[in-house]
């Protein structure tokens, strides 16, 4: 096995994804290639409708592409059945959503426990681990409160805790700062970077928010359903159209 194979966390090659009927087809991804490395935080950027979210869904295994291959931590996703994909997500993925998606009728700690309970972990163990990570994201004392009683930044911290509580190798963040102000967004990204920085983990962030580009190790720019270029320095990006 080559050194490159060891370092690649996510690889998508020649991915096609279409929506709609053959007569009224919308091309979301066209021969898209993407690669993310272990230990890095990579951002997917581009104008609205360029296919960022679709590519993210393909990597997350919630969408199956019509063509191409997707490999996440050595596991080929194309060809897996729905049950195998579900099981793959359960073990390997953590999600941070744009609108947090915290269940309002559950307490903070219960929300964080969800991925562990989905894995079938005992309630007490899930609770203990959830409490530990809630402390790490700086919300000690708010465990029993409802998410609606928290600020946007605090809610996103809960979402990050939920995404990382089961220690997934791949963390997927969809517009994690779009609902937050500049300072809160920066704090959230610091948190994501600090908590997820590990040689065995990869973080893929889809964002429009150029204020957080500085947190990325690399930035992949998308255009018309494919990756147009990948840069190491955000200053090299033309952000006027983002």
């Amino acid at each position: 096995m080559s050194h490159q194979a060891h370092t690649v966390a996510v690889r998508a090659s020649g991915v096609d994804m279409f929506f709609g009927t053959p007569e009224n087809q919308v091309v979301a991804l066209k021969q898209a290639d993407f690669e993310a490395r272990r230990g890095e935080l990579i951002m997917l950027v581009g104008p609205s409708g360029c296919g960022k979210t679709t590519l993210l869904s393909v990597i997350a295994g919630t969408l199956t592409p019509q063509a191409g291959t997707v490999e996440v931590f050595g596991q080929r996703l194309d060809g897996l059945g729905q049950e195998e994909l579900t099981s793959f997500r359960r073990k390997n993925l953590g999600f941070v959503f744009q609108s947090f998606n915290l269940i309002p009728t559950l307490s903070v700690v219960e929300n964080v426990m969800v991925p562990l309970l989905i894995q079938g972990r005992p309630y007490d163990e899930a609770q203990a681990r959830a409490l530990a990570i809630i402390e790490k994201v700086g919300l000690k004392g708010r465990e029993e409160g409802r998410p609606n009683a928290l600020s946007g930044g605090q809610q996103q911290r809960v979402a990050i805790a939920r995404a990382l509580v089961h220690e997934p190798p791949l963390l997927i963040c969809d517009e994690p700062t779009s609902a937050l102000d500049k300072d809160t967004g920066a704090h959230i990204m610091e948190l994501v970077r600090d908590l997820s920085r590990s040689p065995e983990r990869c973080v893929v962030v889809v964002t429009h928010d150029h204020r957080i580009f500085r947190f990325a190790d690399r930035i992949a720019e998308m255009e018309d359903g494919r990756i147009s270029r990948v840069v190491d320095d955000p200053k090299l990006l033309d952000t006027s159209h983002l």
Partner: peptide, 15 residues
Amino acid sequence: ENLKYFAAIKAMGAG
């Protein structure tokens, strides 16, 4: 009302 949360739970790997 809970549909998006069930969708999130599905995405997180609940069958």
